[in-house]
Amino acid sequence: MEAIVRLIAATAPVQTPDEIKAANAAIGAGFAYGLAAIGPGIGIGFVVGKAIEAMARQPEAAGMVRTTMFLGIAFTEALALIGFVVFILLGL
């Protein structure tokens, strides 16, 4: 066991504080983008599900529902884009 620990210590690169900071920024940016994409994904699922339910109930209103659905999807997607911008500013 001690030999393994010594081997890892010998082969592990020495990290400078700047490298550690860059690594933490990259991890944070990845989490920011990932978490920011989950919420809008759920939201778009709700929007589209409800829109299809509405179209099924009233097929004659499908045009209006589709317009509203498209705008709802685009607004929800803006949240993901905000997360993406945070990602590119933090760690891309």
Partner: peptide
């Protein structure tokens, strides 16, 4: 409609 729902959700990931 089913394909529309699936493609919107998959398209969201693809567009991102």
């Amino acid at each position: 409609l089913t394909l529309m729902m699936a493609s919107i959700l998959i398209g969201y990931i693809l567009r991102l």
